[in-house]
Design a protein around this nucleic acid. Sequence first.
DNA 1: CGACTTTGACCGGCGC
DNA 2: GCGCCGGTCAAAGTCG
Length: 428
Amino acid sequence: MHDIIVMDPSTDRLTSLNLLTGSIGSDNKSIVEDGASQNKEAYNQRKKEVIHGTLEEKQHVGSIIARHFLDLGKAEIGEIGEGCSQSVSEERSRDCSISPNIVESMENNKPPVVSSSSISGVVPVLDHLKRSAGGIKNCETSEEAFHGWVPNKVPKFNTSRDVDDEQKAVTSSMIRKARVSVRARSEASTISDGCQWRKYGQKLAKGNPCPRSYYRCTMSSGCPVRKQVQRCAEDQAVLVTTYEGCHDHPLPPAAMAMASTTSAAASMLLSGSMPSHDELMNANLLAKTFPCPPCFATLSASAPFPTVTLDVTPPPASNSSQRLQGHFLLPSLNFPNNFTSTPHVSAQALYNQSKVSGLLSPHKGMELPQIIPPLADSTVSAATAAITSDPNFTAALAAAISSIIGNIQANSNSNSSPTLRNSIDNST
DNA sequence: CGACTTTGACCGGCGC
DNA sequence: GCGCCGGTCAAAGTCG
């Protein structure tokens, strides 16, 4: 019902992501066997299921939350009519503040409580994505749905003649596997995000002396979510965690904010690429309204997949002005006291430029902040602003940031690392 | 003994 | 076609 469709570029097939529960598909046991590699994956997943069984009992608490989340989505979805872009823009102009629940949790340095008021705003955005993605068919049944890394047999494009062929082509090319990265200063090997992970590989990536570690979620057998953890080459104190896929199981509260935000960020990344006129106008208005961005976002063409980066590292003073180039202003967020003065919170939307050639600069393989001067390309500016200024996205983003900060602080308190404490203090 | 990590091998995509 | 590279597998080792 509230799925988005992303395409696995390795297979050019579509994957449905449930954006409300953070789950994939509806039938954990149904494995679409299509292609050799998929057969292998399916076999391994089945093997694990036989060995481990399901973890439903463990996740009782999480399932309650997930159901709550889903019910909220059902309630909210009705508020969005067919004129979705208008609704979104109206909502954006109406209120750019985040939920009081999230603010309260932030002020208390606790993970935000997932409540109706804090999460419901995400839902219309997700629906907006589905609509703006050219009428891509939802996957509600187990036959239609499939696991995040198990591609479906055929792309599920809407054959409606309402969408012209050109738009279909753009849409299909834009829908790629979305990723969400989190940059955070941490001395720990990974950031604590509330999920259980199992390391399954490590590689030395080119251009970075630090190895990249590969983890998969072990909270349920066959959960397709994976993450990559790698230290930044420029600043090895910065840990870059990249999440991919959606959980196929209920999440604990500690992981809910992250999961909802990664889904929301991915959806906004895709949906915001086709801003309406209202969104363009709002983008310019926002840029004038908030001259000192508490948060900003960039577009980049350097990533193989559309990626949103949530940057919770303190901004380097030397190049902060440079980093502002190509960034777009977010509406003022009510960050906690330890996060407000210079909260370098960057929602860095890394577009696969070749897939959105109509919107982005023709240059390839370069970071857009370097190739697109601020406001030089109003379309790109508006697209990014449309993503980052949406109150629904910012609410989810704020929730995740709060969760991350809380986890980092928890780690800091536990290991009493002076360096880590300093890094957190620097972010205040 | 089960869960997890390590690490070399393997595979597929992609550029030349 | 070939080589590079990212991602994954799976056997062996480690840990609690």
